[in-house]
Amino acid sequence: MFSSCRNLLQSSLRARGTPKSFSTLRSSTIPTATTSRSRQIQQRFYSSSEPPPSQAANDRTLVGIFTPKAAALFVATGVGLYFYFRSEKQRLLEQRQKEREVSMVGRARVGGPFTLSTHLNKPFSELNLVGKWNLVYFGFTNCPDICPAELDKMGVVIDALEKKHGRVFQPLFVSVDPARDTPQQVVQYLQDFHPRLTGLIGDYASTKAVCKAYRVYFSTPPNADPKGDYLVDHSIFVYLMDPEGEFVEAFGQAVKAEEIVERVGKEIKDWEGRVGMNL
């Protein structure tokens, strides 16, 4: 392809030597076959490979179209297009990079290492977040009404999205009441919610640490009897962590289930497009 292009170019460049215009050149080449053939041979003098005579007629018609001006135009357009596409590609790459940076900058530094155990006494750390979309809620079992409502909402969101995407979620309930939320208590509590909901429990220090990492405030009243009847004040958010265990979004109490479904659904789609696979 390239070499035949070069041949054509050479022949047309040679034709440049004659000061004839397009129409006169055409009229002079067409009348006699012999002159045009000898001209062809002459033109081919510098080309590396001699074309077989049978192609000469074909070449002649091509040369007829391929005037110096057209050649120059052809080359200019080709070069122009090449640089245009190259710069366009560069621009697109830069734009994509910028978008990625913006989305990374826009992300809050929420999450990080933690060590807790599940309601079934298995160790659970931030590494266990990897491979699933995680919806994380911080609460306590003696929570009057907000926690159960939020956990129900989480179940609705999961059911709605898993219909479309399959089993992609890992729902988590992190207790902010280490004194009273024993594994036994949490096991009983979780029975009323999503069947895959995992309860996470730790001692006071590890609970404090995970809450700090997730920017969750919690406060047990001072002088509270560890076995007594009290409420734990805490921030109310459902966190979305992606399959790499990175924070994506926090949903407050006012955000409706449908809104969360829409937002999380978009995240899943974006992630699948970016990573090129489904979970």
Binding site: T141, P144, D145, Q188, D229
Partner: peptide
């Protein structure tokens, strides 16, 4: 018990 209602949906 101290807080009978908390742990079950029925109690709540």
């Amino acid at each position: 018990p101290e807080h009978p209602a908390a742990a079950s949906r029925q109690g709540r």
